[in-house]
Amino acid sequence: MRWDIRWAGFGGQGVIRAGEILGSAAVKQGLDSALRPMYGPEKTGGWSRADVVISDQPIIFPLIVRPDILIAMSQDGMNRDGSSLKKDGMLLIDGELVKDIKCYPSKVYSVDATNIADSLGRRIVANIVMLGAFVKAFRIVNEDILLQTIIETFPKAAELNKTAFKLGMENVKEVKI
């Protein structure tokens, strides 16, 4: 089984880092993974995209043409990448930042990742909230291995990230459109 996951947002949201953590966790679990980071030309504040492929077979083509899952952390990301979502694909959004869904997913999940991160005093952990929401909504990777990878990535902020991850898992909900 191969999952094509496109993560869209803007620079500074940690979109690429989230993709790296997800891919690392997948590889640790014995799956294969590939990550293709992309940025807009702006030095700061431009668009940002992480294409993560996870597969239980060796990945031949590592890039994504039409994702199975789109994770939109910004309205701009939604606008930019919404139309690429595969028919019957699934969507995960930051519900506070994405109001206008520009595609036709089979399922939509939402979590107010940025608000939750703000409530923890560190907006920078919104991507970790999103990873918690991701694993709760779609599984694909093992929850414990994912959390362990997060902690290894940020050893000095283990508790904060752990909390962010748990809050993401607890607060994600399926929404109807």
């Binding site: 993709g19 590889v27 590939a34 990550l35 293709r36 990945i59 590592p62």
Partner: peptide
Amino acid sequence: EVVGHMYGR
């Protein structure tokens, strides 16, 4: 550029 920038196992 792609092989350089992409992450893999």
